[in-house]
Design a protein around this nucleic acid. Structure first.
Length: 158
DNA sequence: CAAATGATAGGC
DNA sequence: CCTATCATTTGT
């Protein structure tokens, strides 16, 4: 869960069509383990979420509500399902999981299962320190006991 | 507040 | 195979 907080203030960098898109991450949310009913992986490995069971440092992109993509970064070790959803960037029209994927042209066809080693998509530490606040997660009321976990983090002034 | 919109998972 | 559901956004 430390990783979730650490991502705030770091930069998401995406290389596409010879151009570089980069923006500071302002909001993240964690999904992990089998107890977390809000996580795609809580009911076991499936074709869609198998990346969450793989090695950390990979991207997990999926289509939600038939119209928007969401970008996640896999954390924890192999065979333990965990990922951090990038919920917001400091970039025009990128203040939401679906919106930032639209702005950064992230699609599941291209970006699902990428190794974040710096080729196409990666996270960069530019040494920015931010004051971070913890919040309840959103859109997960169906998740039962895990719905009130403070697994959402964001930059204080946003 | 409700619609848009399609992949997915779980049930049959 | 069938269908309820969904880690959202946008417009009324």
């Amino acid at each position: 869960m430390e990783v979730t907080k650490d991502l705030i203030g770091k930069f998401l960098v995406h290389k596409i069509d010879g151009k570089i898109l980069a923006a500071e991450i302002t909001e993240t949310e964690a999904y992990a383990g089998f107890e977390d009913r809000a996580s795609h992986a809580s009911r076991g490995k499936t074709q869609r979420n198998e990346i969450m069971f793989g090695l950390p440092g990979f991207s997990y992109v999926y289509l939600i509500y038939g119209m928007y993509y969401c970008l996640n970064i896999v954390t924890e070790k192999k065979d333990y399902p965990a990922a951090v959803l990038i919920r917001g960037l400091d970039y025009p029209n990128a203040d939401g999981p679906g919106k930032l994927c639209r702005e950064f042209k992230i699609t599941k066809e291209i970006h699902n299962g990428l190794d974040l080693i710096g080729n196409i998509l990666w996270v960069e530490d530019r040494g920015i320190k931010r004051e971070i606040i913890a919040l309840k997660r959103v859109g997960v009321d169906y998740a039962g006991s895990s719905k009130d976990w403070l697994w959402r983090f964001k930059r204080k002034d946003h």
